[in-house]
């Protein structure tokens, strides 16, 4: 069970790390879902064309990175409402993919790979989990960029007074999160060797939830991803034993997050 959860949570965690750095930099990143999907698609297309896994990951990071650029331009440069533009990224990705897919394959549907699928063992999964969490933790803590990211979120004016433009840091972080989402998407689709419209299946939202539940700190976020993964495998296993309506299970993350948010707000209010 735990081993299975470890494998399941790799893409989730990587996306959550993307959500974490943007959240810390003061950007509410609704667009994770769309960026993951873009990455999943680009990865499969690239592997299909070149047969190389590395090319797949590279293409995924580029595609998601480009979506991130679009997100950052419309929200930061054009000063759009960040929630609305983030949503727009999620809305724009599926039809874009369908259209590109139609151009390339003549169909907007499932793309199967004949070869080159990615297979992570439990040990490798654990390694990747620790690597990404550790890397983000390290960047946030021990690099100049990390200091800038953290300050951009809490005290952008202070950052500006030190001669650094907060919007620049935010754009950079959005693009970084796009690249992470690309990796995440590539892992989802390459693991199965297939792209299916909607394959991201809400992982971007869950990742964002994990960021909130993990108090916006790398290792607690890892933990909350783990809890999600365990909950997911429990509910998978439970289907064989007891009947829980799938739709009700799907509503849990939403209600869990709102509960977390309310508790967080109460604590904040008490402190004042």
């Amino acid at each position: 069970m735990i081993g299975k959860a470890l494998i399941f949570m790799v893409p989730l965690l990587i996306a959550a790390m993307g959500g974490l750095i943007t959240e810390l930099a003061g950007v509410l990143n609704i667009a994770l879902e769309g960026m993951i999907l873009a990455g999943a698609f680009a990865a499969v297309v690239a592997v299909d064309l070149t047969g190389s896994l590395a090319a797949g990951f590279l293409a995924a990071m580029t595609a998601s990175g480009l979506m991130a650029v679009l997100f950052s331009v419309t929200s930061l440069r054009l000063k759009g409402n960040i929630f609305v533009t983030g949503l727009a990224i999620n809305l724009i990705t599926p039809p874009l993919i369908a259209m590109v897919s139609k151009l390339l394959y003549g169909s907007g549907g499932v793309i199967r790979l004949s070869s080159g699928t990615l297979n992570l063992s439990q040990a490798e999964s654990l390694l990747w989990l620790l690597f990404f969490t550790g890397a983000i933790w390290f960047v946030l803590r021990y690099t100049p960029l990390g200091l800038r990211i953290r300050t951009a979120g809490t005290d952008p004016d202070f950052l500006f007074s030190r001669g650094i433009k907060p919007a620049g840091i935010q754009s950079l972080v959005i693009i970084l999160s796009g690249i992470l989402c690309g990796i995440s998407g590539a892992m989802i689709s390459l693991k199965l060797g297939v792209f299916i419209p909607g394959i991201s299946a809400g992982k971007g939202w869950i990742a964002l939830v994990a960021v909130y539940l993990g108090f916006k700190k790398p290792f607690p976020v890892l933990l909350s991803c783990f809890i999600f993964a365990i909950a997911e495998s429990l509910s998978d296993a439970a289907q064989g034993i007891i009947e829980i309506p799938a739709n009700l299970i799907l509503s849990f993350p939403y209600f869990m997050t709102i509960t977390g948010l309310v508790l967080f707000s109460i604590a904040k209010k008490r402190k004042q």
Partner: peptide
């Protein structure tokens, strides 16, 4: 002004960190 998310040391050096290589802070 200050950055409430940083430690005192980080606050003092923010923007002008001594570095090891181009990427790391020389704490």
């Amino acid at each position: 002004m200050r950055s409430s998310s940083l430690t005192v040391l980080e606050n003092v050096i923010l923007g002008y960190e001594p570095r090891t290589g181009i990427f790391l802070t020389d704490r």
